[in-house]
Simulated assay, not measured.
Amino acid sequence: MLLTINANNTNVKFAICEGDRMVTDWRLKTDPARTADQYVVWLNQLMQMSGMSLGQIDGAIIATVVPQSLFHLTMLCEKHLKTTPLVVGDPAVKLGIKVLMDMSPQDVGADRLANAVGGHVRYMKPLVVVDFGTATTFDVVDGDGNYVGGAISPGINLSLEALHSMTAKLPRIAVERPAKAIGKDTLTAMQSGIFFGYVGLIEGIVARIRAEFGAPLEVIATGGLAPLFHGGTPVLQHLDQEITTRGLIEIYRRNSGG
């Protein structure tokens, strides 16, 4: 079995995969100080509850945008799982795609590269992957699967936290899809501003990307808040919560000879 680890700024997602499919997955709040020993106790308990054992893991791949976490996650794999993980962004790890950026591929977010690979494997056409994470990212993939570039904007929860922490009277709220754009109290006014504000951001950025790209693009929504916005605008054509894991599985396959 393959263990894929996607460590972003909010959560670390561990997925157990067999062949080209994900068997199960778990999330843990990101803490750069968490040690390999702490990770393995948590992972071992969850695997046992699912009828699996650590000994069934014979390969691992890590994508992280939190450099401080990489050492402990690598130690988890090497010390406790007895396997040397592939690390997305390591020059020795082949992505199987070109990164058409004015910067080193190692400086592009590992999750964004995995999204590009995972999106191309499934859809096989030019794409925009909108990832609703700590940041809301827009990743453009051409018809050959190459990573073209994209856009990064503040994540929805970051915006909500800023509204609460930087104002005297606005409360901390959870984002929801409001019934109307005109809020009748503070709560519904904030929900309207956040939800429809991000709908406008999504539609506007995707429209500009499509105009610059000059060819049709499928738009994929992924990430924690993707289900909330999928269906809230016709721009988001597909909901795909496994795109990053699928990309990590494919990158591992490309580097392990099958």
Rank of each mutant, 00 (worst) to 15 (best):
M52L: 13
T137K: 09
T84V: 15
L95Q: 00
P105G: 08
I205A: 02
L81G: 02
F138C: 07
E242D: 15
V88M: 05
S159R: 12
L95P: 03
K29C: 14
D90Y: 10
A151Q: 12
M22T: 13
L187D: 12
G247A: 12
T233M: 04
G51V: 05
S50K: 15
R253V: 10
R122C: 01
G119Q: 00
F132K: 03
V40W: 05
R208Y: 04
F195P: 01
G258Q: 09
L170F: 07
T186Y: 10
V65L: 13
T186F: 11
L239V: 02
F196R: 05
I205E: 01
G200R: 04
D90R: 10
R254A: 06
L248S: 00
L163A: 08
G214W: 01
E203V: 10
N44A: 15
E203I: 06
V175L: 10
S53K: 15
V235H: 00
I97R: 00
T186K: 14
A174R: 14
K184E: 13
D25N: 13
D107F: 14
N146S: 08
L73W: 05
L239I: 00
A189L: 02
Y252D: 10
S50T: 13
M22L: 12
K79H: 12
P154E: 08
M52T: 07
T30R: 07
F213C: 11
S153W: 00
I209T: 05
M75N: 15
L76A: 07
L201T: 11
A135L: 04
R122Y: 02
Q191Y: 04
R253T: 10
T10I: 12
K79N: 12
L2R: 07
M1Y: 08
K82M: 15
Q56H: 12
G224K: 06
L73R: 03
D240P: 00
G143V: 06
I194N: 02
W42I: 12
R112T: 04
K169F: 07
F196K: 06
L248Q: 00
K98H: 14
L163Y: 11
R177L: 11
K169T: 10
S159M: 14
D31T: 04
L3M: 13
V99R: 01
